[in-house]
Design a protein around this nucleic acid. Structure first.
Lengths: 196, 196, 196, 196
DNA sequence: AATGAATGAGCTTTCATTCAT
DNA sequence: GATGAATGAAAGCTCATTCAT
């Protein structure tokens, strides 16, 4: 079972990376086996998973937990006092998470249309809970009006999600973060004074 | 020539839609032929295109021009006087364009990793020019400081690009637009007074 | 009909050459059309021939007549008096004919197994009549014993047919001819004196 | 390994035969599979060979060694004393070899134009070494003058190579051999007395 | 647990042939 | 007489999956 588990994990990691690089259809079972150190094409994968699809499902389940860390925003950044400092920390943290789980993100992007049930729901849940957490933090720690908080949180996260489209071609990550903090910092300040 | 051109166009349209739905690899030539009204599997497509890949290339070329309309921001929305009104128009316009060319956007997202030369460059050019145009508009019409304009424009467009991730699950499009206008409107007002 | 005949002939010539180069199956109708100056793939060939096979049949018929010239040995080389001189002329003539109709020879070689009825019989007839003519010449002009003449003629022609296998790698054509004349010249002299 | 090797060999044998009968292009992978006892069209062949072309290459390599036996002329027929007896043995041996490896010979003939590098060189090497061996035997055992020996050997083998064109239509194999021995026997005798 | 072999279904592409223009 | 378009059939090859060893 020890060896078994090790192989299982190697398969899952290899698969997620390959799925992220070439998509689900673009990745053959043989390629996964090769990347996991098994003989390609010999079907060794099927001792650990019933189908190729099951590999995807389990790989997502296994990795999605980590991205869930986005939900911990409130816990992680409570009590720093200064809005701009905290926003900067959050932006860097979210971008770092997205980067660390880039394979996963890529799979989610690539496969969400093909597997709305499996992947689509995962994405929705992830986005929804992140927004909710972010919004709650804005309300609790910074006294943002509830109506506005959710919308601002959604917008702020939305722009972070598109970071890869902007950086590094159009803007460096640093400039991106600075601008992000300034924009949403000022929006929040303005908002608290006179909510939309 | 009439029938020929008609079939060609039908193939291109069908292909782009299918590529957007199932990706390039996930779309068979037979499926494209069927969607274009040809006998599936009979290879009729090859009377119009040398390879399946050539279909992708031409479909992108043909449709990218339209999305290029994003570059016309300055021309379209000059002279409305009121910042909030103009921003609202812009947001709606960009979202409508993204929606109208959703097949294309989807293909760009799905295939940009597999075909960095063909698709990746297209995306980069599209994003870069949109940001540039938007920034120029901010500077010329609203006196935004040049340094800040580019960063704000990038951020504003980035959040629009992620709209589909947010709406309708988390926020309705209307709420999204309202919030977007408020956020970037206030950021710009604040920015002009005291640039970063 | 004039233009028609011209196109017909161009098709036949182009086809025979291509068949010789790439075989019957290896030559597409489109390739023949292109080589004949028609639009490839447009089926123009079918205004002149019912099928691709018919092109082969007619091309063979048309060209086989020329190779038949091998049968004219007797007429061409009667009365030169000197055996070695005449044999040299014959060798060169046969090799030149084989070279001139090399496309045809190649087709006969390539397709004789696939089409024993069409091609195989042609080859057999060609070989048989050449041998007969050559033997008759040996008997009439050089007094070779009839029993031996046919066998020697067969052997002599057989080695000429393999000339391409030998020249130029192993022997130059000149050396080949010289040796051929010496060999069969001496065989005939020896034979007439003391038949096998 | 047993089953594997058996299937591999069955594929190679089936392929060579089919290539000889219908040529390389005329033989489908499915046909080879069927002839080798695999499910036609299922691609089982590709577990043993990377491409159809690789099957040809390996089949040639595997069988060419046997035809190489033509090079053993000297060793096989040393010391029989009587020229006519030895020539008869040689003729029968070479014809038997050509007959035994008729599939191979046929492939070499059919494909030498399409694949000059793979097949053409094989043929050239085979012919050249046969001629060289035959000539050496003539020189060593029968004192033939070196200049003449090579040319006579080339001619003698050339006529054997064309045997199939002659027999059985024009001459029986027996008559062919008898005539061959007489012709080249007398040429050699004449040659030794008065070399060209 | 891993492998070599096999298979059914699918893929992209080619091609001989037909037909309306 | 020639062309553009279409089609049925088949080609070489890939692949997810199964199974005996």
């Amino acid at each position: 079972m020890t060896a078994s588990t090790a192989t299982r994990d190697r398969i899952l990691d290899a698969a997620l990376q390959l799925f992220g690089e070439h998509g689900f259809r673009g990745t053959s079972v043989a390629a996964i086996e090769r990347a996991a150190g098994l003989t390609p094409g010999a079907g060794g994968l099927y001792h650990h998973f019933r189908t190729k699809e099951a590999v995807l499902t389990e790989a997502l389940e296994r990795h999605v937990g980590r991205l869930g860390a986005l939900r911990d925003i409130r816990r992680l950044f409570a009590g720093v006092q200064d809005l701009e400092v905290e926003l900067t920390l959050i932006a860097r943290y979210v971008l770092a998470e997205l980067e660390a789980e880039h394979d996963l993100v890529q799979v989610l992007v690539l496969e969400s249309r093909q597997r709305p049930d499996l992947v689509g729901q995962t994405v929705e849940r992830l986005v929804a809970s992140s927004v909710t957490e972010f919004a709650a933090w804005l309300v609790q720690d910074w006294g943002a009006p509830a109506e506005q908080a959710r919308a601002t949180a959604a917008l702020a996260l939305a722009s972070l999600f598109s970071h890869r489209l902007i950086s590094p071609t159009v803007l460096s990550t640093e400039e991106f973060v600075t601008s992000w903090v300034a924009t949403f910092g000022s929006a929040l300040s303005a908002g608290s004074r006179s909510p939309l």
